[in-house]
Design a protein around this nucleic acid. Structure first.
Length: 155
DNA sequence: GCCAACGTTGGC
DNA sequence: GCCAACGTTGGC
């Protein structure tokens, strides 16, 4: 399958591109939305490109690049009682939730802000630029990915 | 911290 | 299966 591209959101209070640069690789557990789950479980492949997006940040926007280093596998945190990602309803034999691993690729010299994304020609269709788009894992097209990379490297 | 937009839940 | 109530997300 051809390489695909994604945008993944995270609040800086939880994890940043600097954390990923330090760690090299991290697991992406805790996604509790079915649409996002489906992307991780069914569509993400090792090598896919990721725009790392800081939400609830000042400014919010893309702070760097990552890549998928492990395709979808069951999110075991859902079975860890007392953990914030614990989900009493998920069955061990039929996991509700999936996660992936991502690896560090590149840290931008700043943030490609949501404002910039909204104003950039060619990104009008990007989910994240649409009002009320809360999905934390979103597909991105190759041209959109390339445009954002160019913007990020120009910072 | 506010609040609009959205997804999920649950009563009927 | 509808839809109101509720909880969460996320920009500002």
């Amino acid at each position: 399958m051809a390489r695909r591209y994604w945008l993944m959101k995270c609040e800086p209070a939880a994890y940043t591109i600097d954390d990923l640069a330090r760690d090299g690789e991290t697991s992406w557990e805790g996604v509790r939305n079915y649409q996002a789950r489906n992307f991780m479980r069914d569509e993400m492949q090792v090598g896919d490109g990721v725009l790392f997006y800081a939400s609830n940040a000042d400014p919010a926007g893309v702070t760097g690049l990552a890549k998928i280093t492990r395709a979808g596998y069951p999110d075991a945190f859902a079975w860890r009682k007392g953990h914030k990602y614990f989900d009493p309803d998920t069955d061990r034999n039929n996991p509700s939730w999936y996660m992936v691993d991502i690896g560090f690729v590149e840290r931008f010299n700043g943030t490609v802000s949501l404002e910039t994304l909204k104003q950039t020609k060619g990104l009008e269709q990007m989910m994240v630029t649409r009002k009320g788009s809360r999905l934390s894992v979103q597909p991105v097209t190759r041209p959109e990915y390339d445009i954002v990379v160019r913007l990020g490297r120009a910072l």
